[in-house]
Nucleic acid binder design. Sequence first.
DNA 1: TATTGTTATACTCTATAACTATA
DNA 2: TATAGTTATAGAGTATAACAATA
Lengths: 155, 155
Amino acid sequence: MGVMSREPQLTSRLGYLFKHAQQVLAEFTTPALAPFGLTGRDLAVLIVLDGLGPASQQEAAHGLGVDRTTMVALLDGLEAKGIVERRPAEEDRRRNVVQLTASGRQTFAAALAASDEAERAFIGTVMDEDRAAEFKERLRALVTQERARDQDPAG
Amino acid sequence: MGVMSREPQLTSRLGYLFKHAQQVLAEFTTPALAPFGLTGRDLAVLIVLDGLGPASQQEAAHGLGVDRTTMVALLDGLEAKGIVERRPAEEDRRRNVVQLTASGRQTFAAALAASDEAERAFIGTVMDEDRAAEFKERLRALVTQERARDQDPAG
DNA sequence: TATTGTTATACTCTATAACTATA
DNA sequence: TATAGTTATAGAGTATAACAATA
């Protein structure tokens, strides 16, 4: 549904703004990822796996911040697409070692670049690069509830 | 679940940041609204109703940006708490006129104030008021995909 | 006994389709 | 016929509980 004639008191509240920022961002990233057969959730899983290297499903789930039961279906989909592979860990056969396949790494790199470009398109028409960096830093600080470190030239 | 040791590549992406900004904000607003028996969703409905004045359920649904079938249960809850009332519209008995009750208006005012204070607590330890206003303006601009009008002294 | 992956189940949120009463 | 509210149903997304294999 569009955003026409929403109540102004509502549209100025932080909860509304965060929710709809997510939705509008998705309007940029979803079509950018579609050619790779990936969703934003898929890409998040791949970012986690790429950061971890070979890992168990439990570790992947923790890295993404979801339950291990939720990770099962996410990996089922990525495995069916040939992007990740699972095999029993030799030293503990209860575990699966999960990692990107060779072609999965290529798909991931291209999809990540496309998603980055979509994020830049989302933010680029609204503010310049300095302000975008400042905005993102303040957003990061809000999520961690740390004090924002704006204007730090040594990043 | 907490946020411990999430993958850094993931936690710097906009999608992740918006999602978790919502979650952390909710950690402030949810307990602030609980004494009034209201959720953030309830408060959003009340903000819409307050802005519209007496309105049909369809108009309320449109103002909130949900389907009319979704509005039914939201109003069921608020009506059971005595915060809103529904009555058939005299000039068209297919419609319900929905409005806040007298005590509902008091609850709403107090809950809105509590939610506002929770938002200030969420943002206040992270940045000063000027930066918070700047941040909110950029967030608003991202949602509407307009150019941000920062530093405009005439608001 | 405890842990990993899996499955079954349930819960939340939301939408579409169908029903009712009115118009 | 069309519309407002309602109900039934379904889908996405997630979690908890229970199960099989392994430790």
